[in-house]
């Protein structure tokens, strides 16, 4: 499938010498939700700012729907909507007026029917005549999304859309993002919440220190990189792991009542059967056995910490 956004050898060095992005190559497929995951200062915002035209790249190129973001900026920007991280809104304007302003900036004719649908979709219709300064934080966030969608873009960038919002609003935001994707919008969101990427993304890109460490389908990523853990619940606590179980490099947890065996499910045999036999022979009384899959968080931490 033809990518809607193609980033080639992109680098950014700020005037103070700080290298924010290092040779980024990335293709974003139409209709997907891509989560760019990374700690603060990783380069996520710089990356989307360059795509949107707010920051100039030092090197490399980007195309959106085949158009270059520098030489064909009018075409590319018309296709893109951006929701910034900060609640950057005026204070004294009305909600409906600020949306009309945003739509006009993108050269679109006023369309009151679309405006009404958009405001209703974002549960803002009853606030259309309210001044921006009178809105709550959650509503302001929704107004920013409405502004970004006011010109009917094909690609929506959400920069940390749920930073500092409560759990309910975060869940509402996820539902909204899913709905937008269903309407055909390609969504790229930056986040440092692993659970967010895990909950809504199709693909996950991990950025750290300006480098794109990997981009992978979420399920594939968890399957390929995700180790599994076998947790053996013991009937009674033990002080130390029996020497006969040394081969499995177990961890003692749960105040001496759990033995944890970390293994790669793709390596056969996994060693589970031998471990259980050995535990039995060592005289350990087993109460329960369960397995857990590594979360995206574990994968993320491993990747970021593995960086030199």
């Amino acid at each position: 499938m033809q990518p809607i956004i193609s980033i080639n050898n992109l680098s950014k060095t700020y005037s103070n010498g700080y290298e924010a992005l290092k040779n980024i190559n990335l293709e974003i497929v139409e209709g997907e939700i891509l989560a760019l995951l990374g700690p603060n200062g990783a380069g996520k915002t710089t990356l989307i700012s360059i795509i949107c035209g707010i920051v100039a790249a030092s090197q490399g190129s980007i195309t959106v729907s085949g158009f270059d973001t520098v030489s064909d900026y009018r075409q590319t920007r018309r296709l893109i909507g951006l929701v910034p991280q900060e609640l950057t809104l005026g204070a004294f304007e009305k909600v409906s007026n600020t949306l009309r302003f945003s739509r006009g900036l993108f050269g679109k004719k006023p369309d009151n029917t679309y405006l009404e649908t958009l405001l209703k979709d974002l549960s803002l219709w009853d606030k259309k005549d309210s001044m921006l300064m009178r809105l709550s934080g959650g509503m302001k966030r929704r107004v920013l999304i409405a502004k970004a969608l006011s010109h009917e873009p094909s690609v929506l960038f959400l920069d940390e859309p749920t930073a500092g919002v409560d759990v309910k609003l975060r869940k509402d935001m996820w539902t909204l993002i899913e709905r937008l994707r269903e309407s055909g919008v390609t969504i790229i969101l930056t986040t440092h919440y692993i659970e967010e990427a895990e909950a809504i993304a199709d693909r996950v890109g991990v950025i750290s220190n300006g480098e794109l460490l990997l981009v992978e389908n979420k399920e594939v990523l968890m399957h390929e990189l995700g180790a599994k853990r076998l947790i053996i619940e013991l009937n009674s606590a033990i002080q130390k792991i029996p020497a006969s179980l040394k081969t499995w490099e177990l961890d003692l947890a749960g105040n001496g009542r759990q033995l944890v065996y970390t293994y790669d499910p793709h390596n056969k045999p996994t060693g589970i059967r031998d471990l259980l036999n050995a535990a039995n022979e060592a005289g350990l009384q087993l109460d329960d056995i369960r397995t857990t899959q590594s979360s995206l968080e574990d994968i993320f931490i491993n990747l970021v910490h593995a960086q030199p």
């Binding site: 949107c52 035209g53 707010i54 009018r74 075409q75 920007r77 893109i80 945003s102 900036l105 993108f106």
Partner: peptide
């Protein structure tokens, strides 16, 4: 940001 990211 809105002005800078608009096709202007």
């Amino acid at each position: 940001y809105e002005i800078m990211s608009a096709p202007l």
